[in-house]
Design a protein around this nucleic acid. Structure first.
Lengths: 227, 227
DNA sequence: ACCTGAACACCGTTCAAGT
DNA sequence: ACCTGAACACCGTTCAAGT
């Protein structure tokens, strides 16, 4: 439905614009956002772009290159950390931006596993983050530790969030359905946590992000001033 | 090669054993471990089991059920946390076990994103972890925070590790190749970190896991005693 | 009850042909 | 230079038929 609408409204505009690598990648992200990574095929992408499947091969060598490309576009959407001397707030800001971007492209996090061909935006992003730590006085080894920890947390949280069977808003209904499916006495702690926490009004799994992020930043701050 | 060997040595034994859901799932994990998730097809799995593709449908409804099933088998391989009153060491032990299991099945972490149908082993595992926190005196909300944080870190680290273009041992050669491909002056901090840290003899990315894990456990310990 | 051959509607990709 | 139709070797899955 949304897919068709986009094709209908844009088709006359897009028709005259010649296909380009950039337009191809943006189209791929639109398709993946709408229907998940499984719905992104050379044929579905071609249709989104108003072109035949074989035309795509004039702008990319194969589908692998598309996947590498859209990951790099996703990275380019994450705000670079500011050169603020306050590394903690720069890192906090950047972590929140990253989580937001990964939340808008739920297919992206799991795709990073198989991509070993980082693009320009990806490398520049990594460089900027490490730079903030180094300028704040972290040793090289400590910057590596900090970066590994922070990004593991961000990606892992995004992965968990993407895996939730509900969108944070409609949690209650679904949690209740899951709870009903398994015997409460077999998983007592899970049942307790679900009823007393997840099913409480106003619960939003997304809020858990800040807790972990601040705990990690606190720990890094302590190690740095102690060092 | 390894695939063929397994088929050759086991085919006579496996032939007489009737196909079962259990044997099917174990076979699927063998195939995915050997060639990645992309190599796991109904046809390749059937061949591994010495059977025709259509026979599989007698034991599972479809491929989705296989994916749900192997994720649950992977969860069952992770050691449950001991009922040790020392929650910190129980959690540390369990985190290391989880990371090891995910490292042996690199395809598993990214698969968790799309699985919204947790099996028995998965639920029991979650229940046991939450139980350790509750028994150690964590509030329900605090147990939820702690679990979300720890698992985000574990999954995220496993995802990063799976995405490395090298296995930890052969890091130097590959890192050098990557470094050569991009201009050092464009990514100065990345270059510095690579040459002065990653390329040092004895570097193993896997060692970063302990740093983050201990920082997180320290933070949780402090919050708990303060509370 | 368990297995299977043939067939269907899909994939990514190649190749030779069109403008 | 850019696009494409037909074809190839694959997918997951259905259905009717075998033992």
């Amino acid at each position: 439905m949304g897919h068709e609408m986009s094709a209908n409204t844009d088709v006359d505009v897009e028709k005259r614009v010649p296909l380009s690598r950039d337009r191809l990648l943006r189209g791929a992200i639109v398709v993946a956002d709408a229907g998940g990574l499984g719905s992104l095929t050379m044929r579905s992408l071609a249709q989104e772009l108003g072109v035949k499947p074989m035309s795509l091969y004039h702008h990319v060598a194969n589908k692998e290159e598309i996947l590498d490309g859209i990951i790099d576009v996703v990275f380019s959407e994450i705000e670079l950390p500011s050169a603020d001397p306050d590394w903690r707030s720069a890192m906090r800001h950047r972590a929140i931006s990253a989580r937001g971007v990964l939340g808008r492209h739920p297919w992206a996090t799991s795709l990073m596993e198989s991509r070993t061909n980082p693009g320009h935006a990806t490398l520049r992003h990594h460089d900027a983050v490490i730079g903030v730590f180094r300028c704040a006085g972290f040793s090289v080894a400590m910057a590596a530790h900090a970066y590994s920890l922070l990004d593991a947390y961000i990606y892992g949280f995004a992965l968990q969030e993407a895996g939730l069977p509900f969108d944070s808003k409609t949690a209650p209904e679904v949690a209740e359905a899951i709870l009903a499916r398994f015997p409460t006495d077999e998983y007592p702690y899970l049942a307790e946590l679900t009823t007393e926490h997840v099913l409480q009004p106003g619960y939003d799994y997304g809020n858990e992000f800040g807790f972990g992020l601040d705990l990690i930043l606190d720990g890094l701050e302590m190690l740095q001033t102690t060092d």
